Every structure is written in C-alpha cells, then in structure tokens.
Amino acid sequence: MISDITGRIAVVTGGASGIGLALAESFIAQGMSVVLADIERARLESEVTRLSDDGADVRGLVTDVSDAASVQRLADFAVAEFGAVHLLCNNAGVESGAAFLDIPLETWRWVMDVNFFGVLHGMRSFLPILEDQEQAHIVNTASLSALAAGAPTFGPYVSSKFAILGVSENLHAELAARQSPVGVSVLAPGPVKTQMSLSERNKPSDVPSSAGNAQRAELMAKLNAMVDEVGLEPSAVADMVLDAVRTDRFFILPHPDKAFEAVRKRLRWMETNESPGVRHAGD
C-alpha cells in the first residue's frame, strides 16, 4: 500500500502503450515520477518525449523483461535516476498460440519468458529496493484468463497468467506474514482496448508466426471485434489500479461480473465435475 503517492517513484514495464502507458499517465497526474520500460525503442522514446514536454518527471529505458540482466539494469537505472522506487508495475505481456499440438515450443518459451518470467525478474530485482521504503507496492498484470481457462489457441497465454496469479498470491502471503511494507496486487482484466492482438510484432526471429493458422485467425477476428465494441479504455483500468495501490487491494477486477462467474464455474466443476467448457470471445 502507498497511502500518499504524491512524490513517489513508479516503474512500469510495457509502459509505451496500452495499459502500461495509461498507468504512467495516471501516476504522473497524481504527482509521481515514472520510469517507463519497453522493448520498442522508437515508441518508448516518443512517449517519454511527449510526457516530458508536458512537464512530467519521466525517464525511459529499453528493457527486455524476459532477460533477468535487462530487468536488473532497469532497477539500477531507476535508483540511479531517482534514488528509490515505491511502485513496480510488472505489466509487459505478449500473446500467441494455436491449437495445442500446433504450438511450437519456441512460442511457449517466448510467452512464458515475457509474461511469467518478466514478472518474476521484476519482483526479484525490485523487491529489495521496495522493502527499503516505508510504503511500497507491486502490481502484476495477469488477466481474466488467470481465473478462467478454456480459450482455444490461447494455451501459452492462459498458462502464463495462471502462473502470475500463483506467484503473486504466494508472495502476498509471505510478505504479509513478516509484516513487509510492500503490498501486492494482481490486475486481472477482461477486454481492454490495447494492442495485445499485435504482440507478435515484437517476437524473436526464432518464434514462428501464428498468422497462417486459420482457427487462430478466426478467433482473433472475433476477439478484436468484441474488444472494439465493449472493451474498456486503458485509462479506466489505470484508475482502478491507482485505487488498489492506495487501499492495499489484492485483486483488481475491471470486469468483476465475468471474474466472479468464472470462479463460480470453477467451484461447480470442483463440486459436481461439471466442466465450464470452451470459453468464447467475450466470455
């Protein structure tokens, strides 16, 4: 928890677009200084320049969250620039897939390396810094998919988000048990108007493209149409994150009805063996 965030320092990965950029803008509006990290250099430099020109105290560093050394450089950079870090948002994420047997191992490794190990690297590098503060907080971006599996072709993404929820819950319990000053939250949104569907623009050269997969293309078209129609604006999600940091709330659920129903279906499955079945776009 950070009861008063004015004057505090935030680090946001995946910070040059989507939810990450909205988080940065929200934090800046509340008087925070921000370090933006992203793997896309041109976009990162453009956003840092724009925010700085508007008067924000912001820095940027190109960071590959799948690389532990790169994340450690980010931590060292943040401390060198601002002397402390109070809020870490492990937000960078990617998505790719196909039917289970059609997903190459390279795709599994890429999605897990960015989504799960990116969060893990962030917590390992920044937790010692955060624990030196009187109040500090970690926000890990998971997904509604961390509560509801069953989406065809999304196996790597769903698995990575379940893993984020698990490691976050475990760390939360550990820190609370020893009365650490560091709080933990998990952000689990459903449809949000971001560029997640274009994640493969940043994939390594050894990761095959999923563009030629017909099942995948059909599902992504439906998903993109649904996001365009009913997806939340990233700024609305950022406001919820800010409130959770101030109130020490673990679950941040931008789509609470969908989240609660997903958990109810899981409980019914456990109690009655009634499987929730396949998730469709928007479920």
Rank of each mutant, 00 (worst) to 15 (best):
R268A: 06
L127Y: 06
E106W: 13
A163G: 08
V186H: 04
D239L: 15
L187G: 02
D38M: 03
S66L: 00
I103N: 04
A176H: 07
V158Y: 02
A42L: 08
Q179R: 14
D248K: 01
R216H: 09
G183V: 01
A188G: 03
L130V: 08
P276H: 00
T272G: 02
E271A: 14
D102N: 10
K222E: 07
S168L: 07
P189M: 14
T153Q: 03
V192L: 11
A68S: 14
V71M: 04
N202Y: 08
L130I: 13
A281H: 13
S46R: 15
D76M: 02
I252D: 02
M1V: 07
R109T: 06
P208L: 14
L87E: 12
V114C: 12
P181T: 11
V263W: 09
L61P: 01
A211V: 05
A217Y: 00
A98C: 02
N115S: 08
V114R: 14
P189Q: 13
V227Y: 02
Q30H: 14
G93K: 12
R264G: 09
G155Y: 12
I5H: 13
T194V: 04
G18I: 04
S145E: 06
L242D: 00
Q215Y: 01
L219Q: 10
P104M: 10
L127M: 08
L51W: 11
R59Y: 12
F100K: 10
N213D: 11
A225M: 09
F77L: 01
G122M: 06
L87C: 11
A24M: 03
G155L: 05
V263N: 09
G93S: 10
G277Q: 05
S125P: 08
M220D: 10
S145A: 13
F27H: 10
R109S: 08
K203R: 15
D248F: 01
I39W: 11
A173N: 12
L242S: 00
G150C: 05
V94K: 15
I138N: 05
S160G: 11
R216I: 08
V71I: 05
F82S: 01
V48Q: 12
V182Y: 13
V65M: 06
H137P: 06
I5P: 10
A68C: 03
A37Y: 12
L21G: 02
R201T: 07
G155M: 05
M220A: 05
V114T: 10
G231H: 01
N224T: 13
